[in-house]
Design a binder for these strands. Structure first.
Lengths: 218, 218
DNA sequence: GTCTATATTGCGATAGAC
DNA sequence: GTCTATCGCAATATAGAC
């Protein structure tokens, strides 16, 4: 964890698995460990070698570097959401799609890098508004859009009673990030094991689709 | 804001509105502005006067000071939740109680000091685990307990279909802290005006009680 | 390794309550 | 007068920066 195999200055030990990717991974660890502001480029140099000049050539700025870190995770997570959307478009029924969304979404928000990103950006977001904005808009915001589309498709089939699909989507996202998630984010609760998460996923889908009341409102 | 009226060494300028309370309020501003770790006692002294020794006499330590800040807000917020609980015990019906809970809960989580507390503790919680733990246990955790009790009362009356009231309570709390709350917490969205919040509150109560699906599961 | 920043503590002086 | 709380200052300790 501390003194990992630092590549020599010339760094030609076989096939480098994409130098850029390697830098981004190291930068992620530093940002997650020390936060955005306290992280410094020199720490990064100390880990991956090379020169500051190279870093700035590739990433433009410290913000650009952080954005690259965000991207490296978001692109992966986006695929999971897109898969849900594709299955829905292919004709999955309502409950199946919502369940798939809840699973994908849960796997994303509890992923350690995602927790770290939220910790950094919630803590320092007001100081670095464009970082927080870009993270939110390219992360949660597109997820909300995709989910809204899914809900609208089912509403068109007469399967939903709601007026505002966007609002329902945003609230379903809240169900995923519930009290327990908050505990994990605060570092108070351990990462829940998969079976616990699955149990909660089932429960939240039931609540979202059917509610908890015995008799529905008039 | 900067050079406020520093009380003279003798400090007898009329009725001091509780010296301790004044210190806690100033400490809150500093913690919220700079975060826990970067806040220092000397800043506090510069604002409220007095000596470090006195601070330590009253609050024991920096952690104790922060805990006092947390308490100063939590005790106020706890009353709002207790009022909901009392009304429910007095016989309020299910929808009324859930609506009242959603309103109280929303007013708390969107309150600027609460947002600041979350920002500080989510950002630095892993470094100061007892602070985060104490905050969580005396805040969200007791809210979950009170809400669970409310749900159990209505379950006993046959008004709820759920098995696990605690789980449902935790998920309802997630509905309150939805996507939009996350945007506010990140500093990306403005504080929503009351009518927007009220509209979302109504919608989340409907989802929680009735769900969004046209036909209930078998 | 040095150096700085800062949490924490010790101690004598002082002011007001009684 | 005594007592108590605070004050102001100086000293210790430690963690991180350079």
């Amino acid at each position: 964890m501390t003194a990992s195999a630092k590549p020599g200055p010339k760094g030609t030990e076989g096939e480098e698995p994409d130098r850029r990717q390697q830098i981004v991974a190291a930068a992620a660890e530093i940002f997650f460990d020390k936060g955005y502001e306290r992280a410094c480029i020199d720490d990064l140099i100390a880990r991956v070698g090379g020169s500051k000049r190279t870093i700035y050539n590739i990433f433009e700025s410290k913000e650009g570097l952080f954005t690259a870190v965000v991207d490296s995770f978001l692109t992966d997570y986006a695929k999971r959401i897109d898969a849900v959307s594709a299955a829905d478009e292919a004709g999955a029924d309502l409950r199946t799609s919502i369940l798939a969304f809840a699973r994908a979404s849960t796997s994303i928000v509890y992923a350690p890098p995602m927790l770290s990103l939220y910790r950094v950006l919630i803590g320092e977001g007001r100081r670095f508004p464009n970082l927080a904005k870009s993270f939110f808009e390219r992360g949660a915001s597109v997820v909300a859009t995709v989910l809204t589309r899914i809900l609208e498709r089912h509403k068109a089939k007469g399967e939903l009673v709601i007026e505002d699909c966007r609002l329902a989507a945003e609230q379903l996202m809240g169900l995923v990030r519930d009290y327990q998630y908050l505990g994990v984010l605060l570092g108070v609760c351990e990462q829940p094991p998969p079976e616990v998460l699955e149990h909660r996923i089932i429960a939240l889908v039931d609540i979202f689709l059917d509610g908890v009341a015995t008799h529905r409102r008039a």
